[in-house]
């Protein structure tokens, strides 16, 4: 697992219907001048940093897994870590 902890740009979809767990879907992000397209939302869960609400998104691009955090107060996206899908 690689720790990143960097602010990133994210394109997010807000769906009107579908599974309750996937009504918000970060579709793609830009990181190190690369665009990564997400194919699956593994899990989204809220947590707190003091009284600040943080939404944690565990995303996958089909190969690697990415942990993103959305700060609901500052309205920022941060890429926390990347888990390589390489099984070796």
């Amino acid at each position: 697992m690689t720790e990143v902890n960097q602010r990133i740009e994210v394109v997010t979809l807000f769906k009107s219907e579908g599974d309750p767990s996937e009504l918000i879907f970060p579709a793609r992000m830009r990181w190190r001048k690369e665009e990564i397209i997400f194919t699956e939302l593994g899990l989204r869960h809220p947590t707190h940093k003091g009284q600040r609400m943080i939404h944690v998104f565990d995303m996958s691009d089909g190969v690697n897994d990415y942990r993103l955090e959305f700060d609901a107060e500052m309205l920022t996206w941060t890429l926390i870590s990347i888990l390589s899908g390489d099984k070796k």
């Binding site: 699956e40 565990d58 996958s60 897994d65 888990l83 099984k87």
Partner: peptide
């Protein structure tokens, strides 16, 4: 199982 749900690359492992 929750970790496997969150990280698809861990599923089946």
């Amino acid at each position: 199982t929750i970790e496997q749900q969150a990280r698809p690359s861990l599923r089946g492992r």
